[in-house]
Simulated scan of single mutants.
Amino acid sequence: METKALKAKAVQVRMDLLRMIHGAKTGHTGGSLSNTDILTALYYRVMNIDSQNPKWADRDRFIASKGHSVESLWCILADLGFFPKEELKTFSQFGTRLIGHPNNKVPGIEMNTGALGHGLAISVGMALAAKRDGRNYRVFCLMGDGEQAEGSVWEAAMAGAHYKLDNLIGIIDRNRLQISGSTEDVMGLEPLEEKWSSFGWHVVSIDGNDMDTLVKTFEAIPFVLDQPTLIMANTVKGKGVSFAENVPHWHHHVPSDAELEKALAELSATLELFKQEGQVR
């Protein structure tokens, strides 16, 4: 998918996830909106995957370590045909597969996640297995910035560098907000880039909501042979919905009927602008 189309697709994913959360009356809205551009770039352009063969041995792997922000991922997997889009209406309902965190009973999900701090360690194991099995697949792991306070993240970071896993890509959704407020007030992280560099990772800091930059960065990996990559994706929590952006309350706020209508109107206007610019039909 071309970059212009990716931008429009990200808007559509945001609209889908807002409808899904509103219908379920539960969800993590802010973080799903912030990570939508990252996931859109990965799933529609960068990763080697096949929705008709989700267990393909040479597929790239994606681990959503910040598993609570699963809504954007569910919408993308449904849109790509990993499961019927109609199933999105069952999100977080009794008996559904589409629970509030990644569930590996669903095609396209590699691992149950959500207990923060575990995803990178899982990803290290997968990347190491690829090296030892002589396979070329890559492992992408999306972490939250609040998650960086977990000690297991740093144990996994040491292991990734030790085993020279240049097929391992860590991504931090650096929106600077977590459930209880600013990351720097809850548990200061800075200088975060320098910390990851000191653990032996090649660090690239980018605008994580800019599709052109995301695609260019992902397609340049690996930057250094025998060294894992850490992408510091600076994002806006609640991205795409003006009254939700950078508002801590929207971490797990469910939009009201009026808020949903207003948010969809904003996103529809953005799509219409893309149409006028020739970015989408």
Score class of each variant (00 low, 15 high):
185 D>H: 14
17 L>F: 08
129 A>R: 13
34 S>P: 12
208 G>H: 01
248 P>M: 08
9 K>R: 15
59 R>F: 01
83 F>Y: 06
147 E>R: 01
195 K>L: 02
191 P>Q: 13
174 R>K: 14
156 A>G: 06
158 M>A: 09
51 S>F: 08
264 L>V: 13
279 Q>T: 01
233 A>Y: 06
204 V>I: 15
120 L>K: 07
130 A>P: 02
96 T>A: 06
110 E>H: 00
66 K>C: 12
34 S>F: 12
83 F>I: 05
124 V>W: 01
265 A>W: 11
33 L>R: 10
76 I>R: 04
208 G>E: 05
215 V>N: 09
199 F>Q: 12
161 A>Y: 00
215 V>Q: 05
233 A>M: 03
219 E>W: 05
162 H>Q: 11
91 F>N: 08
104 N>L: 08
42 L>M: 03
231 I>F: 07
220 A>D: 15
166 D>R: 00
45 R>K: 14
279 Q>E: 09
274 F>M: 15
94 F>Y: 07
247 V>L: 06
193 E>S: 11
230 L>D: 04
121 A>H: 07
258 A>N: 12
41 A>K: 04
172 I>H: 00
66 K>M: 11
80 L>P: 00
260 L>K: 05
82 F>I: 08
59 R>C: 06
31 G>A: 10
173 D>C: 09
238 G>I: 12
263 A>H: 05
123 S>F: 02
234 N>H: 13
67 G>M: 02
189 L>D: 04
192 L>Q: 05
84 P>D: 12
49 I>E: 03
265 A>C: 11
44 Y>F: 15
163 Y>S: 13
199 F>K: 12
172 I>M: 08
78 A>H: 11
277 E>N: 11
76 I>P: 00
141 C>M: 08
125 G>W: 03
53 N>V: 08
214 L>T: 10
47 M>D: 13
32 S>Q: 11
132 R>W: 14
